[in-house]
Design a protein around this nucleic acid. Sequence first.
DNA 1: CTGTTTACGTCAGCCTTGTTGACTTTCCAA
DNA 2: TTGGAAAGTCAACAAGGCTGACGTAAACAG
Lengths: 170, 170
Amino acid sequence: MAEGGGAGSAGGENLLFLTDEQLRKGIEAMFFAYRGFTADPDRILEARGYGRAHHRAIHFINRQEGQTVNTLLAMLGVTKQSLNRVLRTLIEDGLVESRVGRKDKRERHLFLTEAGRALERSLTEAQRGRMRAAYRTAGPEAVAGFRQVLEAMMDPDLRRHYQSMKDGGS
Amino acid sequence: MAEGGGAGSAGGENLLFLTDEQLRKGIEAMFFAYRGFTADPDRILEARGYGRAHHRAIHFINRQEGQTVNTLLAMLGVTKQSLNRVLRTLIEDGLVESRVGRKDKRERHLFLTEAGRALERSLTEAQRGRMRAAYRTAGPEAVAGFRQVLEAMMDPDLRRHYQSMKDGGS
DNA sequence: CTGTTTACGTCAGCCTTGTTGACTTTCCAA
DNA sequence: TTGGAAAGTCAACAAGGCTGACGTAAACAG
């Protein structure tokens, strides 16, 4: 393998896209793009006294309602103590509800309240706005490539989390 | 409005790639990929008692040797107090050298020492390793798309910084 | 020459968000 | 029934953002 994976037709076999300079460019692209990626939701969060950690929690609770704290932990890759602090403020502020498990009373199942869902929507919409614009500018083929490269860049464990919630409905 | 910008040939006019689900997938791809992106250098840094902030400083000093503190500040988008703390430890540890400007003596020009350059190489090599693997897996066309989307996602100001240091030789 | 601006550094203090360690409560298995 | 494992909470610490205030030296404008 290594022979340029799919190597469609553009670059061909010369592997020009693997030069150190190209790789450095990719690294810096990730750095600058990630800043843009988080900028819009950050503004909304700041106005309410929250940080990125709150955003992440809200996002993943929304994605899978009724999730336990442990599941969420695995997604986020932080310690339970760290998550707990964020979670506590969200619960106090009435954005998240934590229900004791019916089968296993050690577990807490997490849900967004109406207010939580509203904040989630506004955060996601802000982030989607930029993503949508970028997608539109770049076009569908570029988007496919974008997703392929990102997926290949993930740690295998995280990639499983990513893939676990499949594309659209199906 | 919004009639699909470039819309090359693949997805066509249906704009399937702009559904909310596709956008959510893109958002999560960014999130998980960025974790992978920083994981390898983070391990090296931790062993030496440094953090990501040190990595960023070293990276950008290397990219443009002799840069002033102010220029670096603009790249990194942090306050001078924040940068200074990091910079001070790097200078104390002999990884970075700060020379008073010859023309304008108020300015400090930043350089990596031999030790600094060595650390920079090991950090970059770690990060490039993953990037290279991802590029190879995805292929040159995907890489082009990846870069296009990332670039479109940047804030215009940051995009200028990104573009200012052009691709390889040329 | 004088006053202002610029570039840089520093001290102090705050906040978010990561960490480890110690502790309860609950479940389950020997 | 008892002991360990698992889920979650509390406490304390560190990194690295931030603001604000201040100091110094050099440059520049009048």
